[in-house]
């Protein structure tokens, strides 16, 4: 897939247009622009924060 397609997919709207794409309902849709991506980022950040407090606090 040309990078311009990838660029277009990941930018405005973020809905994949052509080329390999992840289905919206699929668990891996965390990697396309979606609320799932936000939720995954939140989960990851809070895991890091918690482990920071547990191991270094």
């Amino acid at each position: 897939m040309a990078i311009n397609d990838l660029n277009a997919e990941m930018s405005a709207g973020g809905e994949p247009k052509g080329g390999p794409k992840f289905d919206r309902g699929h668990p891996l849709s965390i990697f396309v622009r979606d609320r799932n991506e936000d939720l995954s980022a939140l989960l990851l950040a809070f895991l890091i924060a918690m482990s920071g407090i547990i191991f270094f606090g």
Binding site: F31, E37, A41, L44, A45
Partner: peptide, 10 residues
């Protein structure tokens, strides 16, 4: 972008 967002939260 997932990791960028995680960074912004932190």
């Amino acid at each position: 972008r997932l990791f960028l967002k995680t960074g912004v939260i932190l």
